[in-house]
Write a protein that binds this DNA or RNA. Structure first.
Lengths: 239, 239
DNA sequence: TTCAGCAGGATTGTTAACAATTCTGTCAAC
DNA sequence: GTTGACAGAATTGTTAACAATCCTGCTGAA
């Protein structure tokens, strides 16, 4: 299987693509931690930024909320989600359940050109990491995981993983030590090696270990109230 | 962990619950195959049925589309999704990747009351099956899988599984032999037995085998055009 | 000084009307 | 009899105005 474009979603209509574009751009901003957890996403601001009407923005925010990347509070607006410790645990658990299988599937299906693309991508990751370009490093390391899902050839799981990666960025933003990125290790290189050898079992093991590494870098027990929005904690008849 | 109510989603606002209710009811209708693939979901009809305004309906349809349970076609409306053979393959593959892990997690975490609830549920399934109550049988057998996810205690994966189960019903409706239900076998009973013994490894194996059974009952190669909507096949600049 | 109450402004939620496209039925032509 | 075009109806997509809620800053009293 060859690597398709940036993504291969299809919601058919011409207007939907614009909607999906907005959603994707916000996903990307969250992944790069340019939109920290709790950030207010006001409709008027988003209307100006993307140059679309309010309806389009509201639909995009609803889609983002259905992926639990933003939280909608009645009459208060949309905010970048702030996953609870419990939600963080669930996200990591889900990634542990899903992504090793994705790695296994990718190892079975990867063509030579797929592996070459991954290698090129890994080079970009290294460059971003070495040059201290934090945002690029985070984005690229996340993209590596989505590329695996694309190679695995399963659009359903690709969509799930995009959501989980984005939420992982939020989790690291809340519970991670400052400066910690998503994937610091060189596990990605080992994964490519396993794919090159079509060693699907090892690819799954590396991925599981890789995810454990990521999980180790967050402390879900600590700082329960760092930067908390007290209004939404003790707030109105909302939640 | 105790079994919570019908579902424990939280989108916070008071209006969202109404939205989620609409979505859930359509999900349920699709699962029970009361809404066959390709059915037109007109806004005005849904407004009357649920007694809400058009905006609420449009938002609900967007949420359903984001779960790929309905398809939105520009200026033509919303239709119950008709998964392609490729999509069907992806859904089964995703279930194979996810649900054995859910079964494993459930086996590790199931409390006595959870197992009792599953046993009671299985009894209902048997009754529905024996009395030839097809819709109840389908709905209950699907609910068994979501109950497992609830016992597993992972809301993220619960949501994924709800989507996959609903889409499976669509797939069976298209590619399955007439009269075939979702889960005919008695694998559910074996699963409960594995949970009772806290044998998480066996629970995962039974689930994998169970999913294979389901997959065997559909023929993705056959009848590519049974009841096809020619307009959406050769149709306008859409699709 | 601190806190409660209270406008004023801003933002979100909803409704209704309007615009645009598609579907349906009819009619004429071949 | 079938095919094509056309007009009217119906449905969807969009916009704008209105209503409701919330946030902010001020005033005044304890």
């Amino acid at each position: 299987m060859t690597l398709p474009g940036p993504n291969s979603e299809q919601l058919s209509t011409a207007e939907e693509v614009a909607e999906e574009q907005i959603v994707d751009r916000i996903f990307e901003a969250v992944i790069e931690q340019r939109l920290p957890p709790g950030t207010k996403l006001s409709e008027s601001a988003l209307c100006e930024v993307f140059g679309v009407g309010r309806m389009r923005i509201r639909r995009s925010l609803l889609l983002l909320a259905s992926r639990e990347v933003v939280e909608l509070h009645s009459n208060r607006g949309a905010f970048v989600a702030r996953p609870t410790a419990e939600q963080a645990r669930e996200v990591f658990e889900a990634r542990q359940a899903i992504e090793p299988n994705v790695a296994r599937m990718a190892a079975k299906r990867a063509a030579a050109e797929d592996i070459a693309a991954l290698a090129r991508h890994l080079e970009l990751e290294s460059q971003a990491h070495d040059s201290g370009n934090r945002r690029d490093a985070i984005r690229l390391s996340g993209q590596f995981h989505t590329m695996l899902a694309q190679i695995a050839g399963n659009g359903v799981m690709l969509r799930m993983i995009k959501e989980l990666i984005t939420r992982t960025s939020l989790i690291i933003g809340i519970y991670g030590a400052p400066g910690v990125t998503n994937c610091r290790d060189d596990d990605h290189a080992e994964l490519i090696d396993a794919l090159r050898k079509s060693d699907d079992r090892r690819a799954a093991e590396i991925m599981a270990e890789h995810l454990r590494h990521i999980e180790e870098r967050v402390d879900l027990t600590a700082r329960p109230g760092a930067g908390v929005d007290l209004v939404s904690v003790f707030g109105r008849r909302d939640a």
